Amino acid sequence: MEISDWRKKIDELDEQIVRLINQRAEAARAIGELKRVSDLPVYEPRREQIVFDHVRSVNAGPLADAEIQHVYERIIDVMRTLQRRDA
């Protein structure tokens, strides 16, 4: 494949990733609402560690586990901000 073909593939993958991130945001927003009515904290370090452990366990590469976790740290940070913003 040529560079332009790879870039087209990346664009298509990015579109899928954006849809999935937004689906994850909807789930996080719903959880945030449940936390609010149950008077639970937005920040749950134990749950975040479970997520990190899970994504590392399903990671088949080529990214290293630490790199996958770094991506998810940022995703979770954004989701936490969304939950606080919608509070």
Rank of each mutant, 00 (worst) to 15 (best):
R19Q: 07
L82P: 07
K9T: 10
L82I: 15
V55I: 00
I3E: 12
H54L: 00
G32P: 04
A66E: 15
R80F: 12
D65P: 07
A66D: 15
L13S: 07
G61R: 03
L82K: 14
R80V: 14
E67A: 13
E2R: 11
I75A: 13
E67F: 08
A66G: 09
A28I: 04
D65F: 03
R47T: 03
A27C: 05
N22I: 04
V42M: 02
D11I: 10
T81M: 15
R74K: 14
V18P: 02
D14T: 08
R84K: 13
E44G: 00
L63V: 03
H70I: 03
V42D: 06
L34K: 10
R46M: 04
R46L: 01
P41G: 07
I76E: 13
E15F: 04
R36I: 04
S4L: 14
L20S: 07
V37K: 08
G32C: 05
K35Q: 10
I76K: 08
T81G: 15
R24W: 12
Y72Q: 08
R24L: 05
V55R: 00
S38Q: 14
T81C: 13
V37E: 04
V37G: 00
V42P: 00
E12H: 09
I17R: 11
P41A: 02
R56K: 09
P45G: 01
W6L: 15
A87R: 11
R84T: 12
I21Y: 10
S4G: 06
L34M: 06
V51S: 03
I75S: 05
I21L: 14
K8H: 08
A87F: 04
D11E: 14
V71M: 12
A66H: 04
R84V: 10
R19Y: 08
E26I: 08
S38N: 07
E26M: 08
V71P: 06
I75F: 13
M79W: 11
V18Q: 07
V42H: 01
S57L: 01
I21P: 00
R80W: 10
H54K: 05
R7H: 12
R29S: 05
A28G: 06
E15D: 09
N59E: 03
V37A: 02
K8I: 09
K9C: 12
Q69M: 11
A30P: 00
I10W: 13
